[in-house]
Amino acid sequence: MTEKIDLSRTYAPSDDVVVREIEGEIVIVPLTSGIGDVEDECFTFDEWGRAVWSKIDGSRPLETVVQELLDEYDAPAGLLKGEVVGLLQELYERRMIVDKG
């Protein structure tokens, strides 16, 4: 899966994972086979990843999400955009999010 993340597109959590929030942590548990390198692991985020993930709900294009994060975080636009795209690229490659168009 080598497609690049496109800021004009909308992304949402995949049906291949179960997303849980437990004691303030977001935990992503694979549901179907082939998520991640091996099948005996689950995934979680750092604070930054959690902030981004909470906005990836399929309701708006990624560029809108980036703008919202720029309003919330004191960070250079280029750096923040790069971080968001990097995170989503990893999530997409792990089949944790899908492209909703």
Partner: peptide, 8 residues
């Protein structure tokens, strides 16, 4: 790294 893998 954005996503941390953990044993649940």
């Amino acid at each position: 790294a954005y996503v941390r893998k953990v044993r649940s």
